[in-house]
C-alpha cells in the first residue's frame, strides 16, 4: 500500500495448504494482497505485508489459516500486559 511496509519476519500468519479448497475468500478480504490463488490453492505471496487483522482466518470456511490477530497499538499492548499481570483493568480506546 502506497509503499508503506512494516517490519519483516514478525507476523504469525500461517497457511495449511493441504486443507485449502481454493475458494478465494482470503484474497477477497485481505487489504494487503497477502494471498494469491495458484493452481487452485491459496499461496502466501507477500507474508510480510500482513497486519494480522485476522480477516482471512475468520473468513476461511475450512480453517486453513491461523494468525494471532489483535490490536496493534502500543497503549493497547501495554494495557494488555498490565491486565495479564493483573496490575490494571486496562481500559483503552
Amino acid at each position: 500500500m502506497d509503499g508503506f511496509r512494516y517490519l519483516n519476519n514478525v507476523v504469525t500468519l500461517a497457511l495449511d495448504q493441504p486443507t485449502c479448497t481454493g475458494c478465494g475468500r482470503c484474497v477477497e478480504v485481505c487489504p494487503h494482497q497477502v494471498f494469491i490463488i495458484a493452481r487452485g490453492k491459496a499461496v502466501l505471496a507477500d507474508r510480510d505485508a500482513c497486519m494480522e487483522c485476522g480477516a482471512c482466518a475468520l473468513n476461511c470456511p475450512v480453517k486453513a489459516i491461523t494468525v494471532d490477530a489483535g490490536v496493534g497499538c502500543a497503549i493497547g499492548i501495554i494495557s494488555e500486559w498490565l491486565r495479564e499481570r493483573k496490575l490494571s483493568k486496562g481500559r483503552y480506546c
Binding site: L7, V10, T12, C50, M51, D68, V71, G72, C73, A74
Partner: peptide, 23 residues
Amino acid sequence: AYHTLNFTGCTTFTSRSGVRKEM
C-alpha cells in the same frame, strides 16, 4: 519515539507482532 510508536494504533499496515517486537 514513544509517541510515534503509539501511532501504530492509527495505521492499517502495522502488525501486532511487529509492535510487540518494537516494544
